[in-house]
Design a binder for these strands. Structure first.
Lengths: 200, 200
DNA sequence: GGTCAAATGTGACCACAGTCATAAATATAA
DNA sequence: TTATATTTATGACTGTGGTCACATTTGACC
């Protein structure tokens, strides 16, 4: 690693570290880029060499966290249990990890939306968090069809989209709630209903 | 109506009208408050007497549209058809009305999220668009239980939340898509699946 | 270690949302 | 009509995110 690269990652890490501390202390909105750069010992312009906007920094936080989560999931003991339980465990795990920092999650959902709206950032690639979730669910359901846990006639992709939607909505409701409800409980209840169906 | 009130609504309408035109011409982001006020023939400060932020104006657009939609729905010919069809018709109608102006919808979804995040605006009252949708669905499903279209054992509220989630997710996917998919088609397909269930 | 090109750093500067003390317009009371 | 209170309008001003022309540092090649 060249000196340049070393300094680069050093600076990026410094920004990450300082802003993380400041966000926890005073929140995202009330932390200014000026503060971050001052504390990090760099010029304001430098900040924007690393993150195109203040919000991009937030997305970076999200990415870091996401990598951790999906990494953990693949190492989970998810063998030999029914598909419904696999999916429930997976989503509950996601929910629990999100429940740990409600404020950060709020901000990230918000930024994700902004990202979506301002599509000059290019169409959905890995930026689309929801796609990743849908793909993972697709994998689980597809296996379920083979095993016989799930209707063979099922449009598996549509089903994974539905589950993603239910997850997203529960997340949003939880973010809006005054904390009386448990996100992870909500989720598992709804998965049950999805598997049974609504009609008679 | 006093002179004051008359002038007030006049000014508000002027802002509404001018900004509507400008948003269509140049988009929301590129339209500045200065422009709006200049064209409306008022001072900048006056704008903020009517809308606390530039974004509040966007929400106002949304509210206006929503009133129209829900108004129409109650007058619809929705008598005597099965619950599943009622729900499908309702959501397809919503979807179609949203499909008419994708950009505005994007912005509104975005602002709705912002509204949610910055909860110093007070907790969810009528601001919660999703709640209204869930309540409407609840009404339809509840009737369905009585009529026998829907499982009697069903947790009706949970089911309406699920449907809301599916609607929301389809909306978001459609907003992100490059226009090849039809939002309203997506929705009706997914309602079918919800009624049948995923499990064997 | 001298020279050039490319990458990175810098901070004065700008655009724009939002504020606030003050002025103008309107209502109320006499 | 005059005097006073209340509501609404005004625009200079401020704070902050983001830009850009220029300075500095680094790496490659001789």
């Amino acid at each position: 690693m060249s000196l340049r690269e070393k300094k680069k990652t050093e600076t990026k890490n410094k920004i990450f570290e300082v802003s993380g501390r400041l966000f926890k202390e005073k929140g995202f909105e009330k932390t200014t880029v000026d503060e971050i750069t001052k504390e990090a010992g760099i010029a304001k312009g430098t900040f924007f060499n690393y993150f195109s906007t203040k919000e991009a920094l937030l997305l970076y936080f999200g990415e870091q966290k996401e990598e951790l989560i999906y990494g953990l999931i693949e190492n989970e003991t998810m063998k030999g249990i029914p598909t419904k339980e696999k999916i429930t465990n997976f989503l509950v795990f996601l929910a629990e990890s999100v429940e740990k920092d409600k404020e950060l999650t709020k901000l990230m959902v918000f930024e994700y939306t902004r990202y979506m709206v301002h599509s000059y950032l290019g169409p959905c690639e890995d930026k689309c968090r929801l796609h990743r979730l849908t793909e993972t669910l697709f994998g689980l359901l597809d296996e379920g069809v083979k095993v016989g846990d799930v209707k063979t006639s099922l449009d598996v992709y549509k089903a994974s989209e539905i589950i993603t939607g239910v997850y997203l909505h529960s997340l949003i409701m939880w973010l809006n709630s005054e904390d009386k409800i448990s996100f992870s409980n909500e989720i598992s209840g709804k998965i049950d209903m999805l598997f049974e169906g609504i009609g008679v």
